[in-house]
Simulated assay, not measured.
Amino acid sequence: MADRSHGIPPAELGDDELRSEMAHLHETRHDTVLGGSEDALETHTRRMLELETEFQRRFPAEAAPEPRRTRAGSREEAGQADR
């Protein structure tokens, strides 16, 4: 039997559940960083990375960076694409 002490494995979540779990984790991140124990932060970080990795796998187009947030996209927007 799988260890579910830290939630359902991301691959087993439905799309809406994955989005909800990720949103909740991002909402609680600040409090965990500021007030959580070292173990709580480790667990939170591990779960966050698992969920984000699964999100990127399922929704690569949504997870892709905005072109302006990349070096090449910023240069292109500034008219410096050749550099």
Rank of each mutant, 00 (worst) to 15 (best):
T45M: 06
S5V: 07
A63W: 04
H24R: 11
G36M: 01
E77Q: 15
E42N: 11
R58K: 09
D3L: 00
T43A: 00
I8C: 11
S37T: 10
M48T: 04
A61T: 14
D82Y: 12
L51G: 07
T53L: 07
P9N: 05
R46D: 03
E62I: 10
P67L: 09
A72N: 09
V33E: 00
E50C: 05
T43E: 03
E52T: 13
Q80W: 14
F55L: 10
P9H: 05
H44R: 02
T53I: 02
S5R: 04
R83A: 11
P10W: 02
E12C: 04
E42W: 02
T28P: 00
E52W: 08
R69Q: 12
R19H: 13
A11Y: 13
R4T: 09
E62M: 07
E52H: 04
G7V: 05
R58A: 00
P60V: 01
G36E: 02
D31G: 13
A72L: 13
R69W: 11
A23P: 05
L18N: 10
L18E: 08
E42F: 02
R83P: 03
E27N: 11
S74W: 12
T43C: 02
D82E: 15
G35L: 10
G79F: 07
G73P: 03
E77D: 12
D15K: 06
L41A: 10
P10K: 03
R69P: 06
E27Q: 15
F59V: 12
L13D: 04
H6K: 13
D3N: 09
A2T: 13
R57P: 05
